[in-house]
Amino acid sequence: MDNRTVEVIIPAYRPDERFNRLIERLTQQTHLPQRILVMNTEESLWKQAPVCRSAFEAGHTAGGVPLALVHLPQEEFDHGGTRDRAAAMSQADVLLFMTQDAVPADEYLIERLLAQLGDNTGGAVAAAYARQLPDKKCSPLERYTRSFNYGEKSRIKSARDLPELGIKTYFCSNVCAAYVRSVYEAMGGFEKQTIFNEDMIFAAKLIKAGYKIAYAADARVVHSHNYTGKQQFKRNFDLAVSQADHPEIFADVRSEKEGVRLVKSTAAYLCRHGRPYLLPKLIWQSGCKYLGYFLGSRYRALPKRVVTACSMNRKYWKNKVF
């Protein structure tokens, strides 16, 4: 039996019913978390949301698990900084970061993530992330993308995998990812003041420091989005911005090759399964992704008003100098 303590950290913004299911599933785990800490953006929005507010606000426990709630104003939210602020409040052995819309598929999520993690010594697995399954309302394109990015086989990644996997060596998703807290702190935690991609940036630092990252395919959450072409554009714009701001990590492992491989593989899948009518939609969405990435990687050459319009995280640019 693994005796390590685990704290679950969940940033929240306008949480919906999936948040309720997430909390319920977390309190049914075979390895219960020591505490669930929610970092909510805008207290007024929390009070309007259809979520289990009373238990959090009273400091009650759910299923024997203590609940904690911290409110912060929208201007203080930062993808890396907010999570790091929550990590500093924890004394648990393992930090499990999740998003408000990722629902554990079963009661073994925490147990199976823990099974992948090593100790705090160099060369050990310092982070493990879960497989993301599509929900029932997921579109065929997004369903295939999930299977492409989150396959059935687990894998432990290290610097030795860079020639084969390229940028996917650094892939790690805070939709559901666990970190050894002592290593997290020793490495300085997540990047502060980052628009996006704090998980991959930190994962790359782990790899470069000699640690390993585990993809735990048997640790599963239900999480997917049906993004429009415009949303895909904005998301990839922000992704490229985060990479452009960290050339020390991403300059030698570009994303374009992996993107092309996904498009080709998806097109073949649609043709094999009698859905060639979805090819125009695939081409449209892929074009939106590429254009967003192309402009985001060159954002410093664009007027600030254009950058703000292209970004999914517009408030990030308020005090950004470039």
Rank of each mutant, 00 (worst) to 15 (best):
L45S: 07
H79K: 10
G118D: 08
P11C: 08
G287K: 00
D161M: 03
K208R: 13
S224Q: 06
D84L: 08
E57A: 04
E75A: 11
I23D: 07
V125N: 09
L239H: 11
T41V: 14
P140Q: 04
P11Y: 05
Y170P: 01
L282H: 09
E75Q: 10
A204T: 12
L22A: 04
G229F: 03
E107Y: 03
G59N: 08
D106Y: 05
Y108V: 01
G189F: 08
V103G: 09
K212V: 02
K289V: 10
R18V: 01
G118S: 05
K230M: 06
V306L: 12
K320F: 08
L278P: 08
G229D: 14
Q132H: 13
S154Y: 09
F171V: 14
I156E: 12
S44W: 14
Y316C: 00
H60S: 11
E164L: 05
T5F: 01
K153R: 05
N319Q: 09
E24I: 01
V125F: 01
L114G: 03
G64E: 15
M200P: 02
T5Q: 07
R261M: 07
R21D: 15
K136P: 00
T61A: 13
Y293P: 00
L95H: 07
W317F: 14
L282R: 07
C271T: 12
L109N: 07
Q231N: 14
R4I: 13
K315Q: 13
M187Q: 12
S265K: 14
D106K: 01
Q28P: 00
C172L: 08
Y129L: 09
K320D: 11
Y290A: 13
W46L: 05
P247Y: 10
A267C: 02
H246I: 01
M89L: 15
D135C: 06
L239D: 15
Y277N: 07
E76Q: 10
G292L: 12
A219D: 14
K264C: 09
G210P: 07
L141M: 05
D16C: 02
T99E: 15
